[in-house]
């Protein structure tokens, strides 16, 4: 841990995590500096939740992992006072009133501001006298975000925070997150399946596939590195021979996604466009055997 660069909020080097014989996170290395909105993407079982749990010290692994300059496993209690975290299956206590949760958070989390939480709650339809059990799922999620966004920290970790919510609730959640918490200095790490919805929010993306970090890149780099080409069906064979990362259809037309510039002779056969994060996600995490079958 000592040779980690503490200017990064999160830093991993050769970090692995195993459950018995199953490897959940496989020898990954990355750095997350301040002021970023990082999307952690991956299929079910890719290792996203395991990695996030390791980041907050709930499970340990091998290799090096430093969060806010601390060892998450050994200094978990100290770490939890300095970061905000919504776990994937977090359920707020149904017996509690909102005001009681503010009281509990004030006593348990030294950096929590009840006043700030009340201000954030004014953006929602949740009242301080409401009981959690009487709130809708969307309202509970908004309440949870208001609670953890009222903690004065530099790092927020959100594990599938909008899972099971309708589109309106998801949109409200991310609006509140960006408007009220992200200030250019703080970093958020969000794991989600709803890739298309958060694409516009992200500054960086990390993709996990079967525990391996297959992509760790900023959105700017992504735009310059990956190129998609929309082409006619007649050019399909020529495109396939150039071994694109992914061949798919976009608005009825065949398209191909390349890591880097497509060969010059192909560029004349089609039209370049910016690939979406979903397409890139599919390209990098779909099983090769499945891809060949689809193609």
């Amino acid at each position: 841990m000592n040779n980690m660069d503490h200017s990064n909020l999160v830093e991993a080097s050769g970090f692995s995590l195993r459950y018995g014989r199953k490897t959940a996170v496989d020898d990954i290395s990355f750095k997350i500096p301040k002021g970023r909105v990082v999307g952690l993407l991956g299929h079910n079982g890719a290792g996203k939740t395991s990695l996030m749990k390791a980041m907050v010290g709930l499970i340990g692994g091998s290799g090096q992992l430093s969060v806010l300059g601390l060892d998450p496993r050994a200094q978990r209690n100290e770490l939890l006072t300095s970061l905000s975290y919504i776990p994937d299956v977090a359920v707020l206590p149904r017996w509690a009133k909102v005001e009681e949760l503010l009281t509990l958070m004030s006593g348990l989390q030294p950096r929590f501001s009840a006043e700030r939480a009340r201000t954030l709650l004014k953006r929602t339809s949740v009242a301080s006298g409401d009981k959690v059990k009487n709130l809708s799922k969307g309202m509970v999620t908004q309440l949870h975000l208001a609670l953890i966004a009222a903690i004065d920290t530099r790092l927020m970790i959100l594990d599938e925070p909008t899972l099971g919510l309708d589109v309106m609730s998801r949109k409200s959640f991310y609006e509140m997150l960006i408007d009220e918490w992200c200030d250019g200095e703080r970093t958020v790490i969000i794991s989600t399946h709803q890739v298309e919805e958060i694409e516009t929010l992200l500054s960086d993306v990390m993709m996990l596939d079967e525990g391996k970090l297959v992509l760790n890149i900023s959105l700017e780099e992504m735009d310059s590195r990956f190129v998609a080409l929309s082409h006619d069906a007649a050019a399909a064979d020529a495109v396939a021979s150039a071994h694109p990362l992914l061949r798919y259809r976009l608005q009825g037309k065949p398209a191909a996604l390349f890591d880097g510039e497509p060969p010059v002779h192909l560029q004349a056969l089609g039209q370049r466009f910016r690939p979406s994060l979903v397409d890139l996600f599919m390209a990098l995490t779909r099983k090769p055997e499945m891809q060949s079958r689809q193609a």
């Binding site: 907050v56 709930l58 209690n77 100290e78 939890l80 006072t81 975290y85 919504i86 776990p87 994937d88 299956v89 977090a90 359920v91 707020l92 206590p93 149904r94 958070m105 348990l108 989390q109 030294p110 953890i148």
Partner: peptide, 14 residues
Amino acid sequence: QDRTIEFWLSLPGT
């Protein structure tokens, strides 16, 4: 049982 354990574990405290 009431599935709040993840919430409590996300807060400081031993």
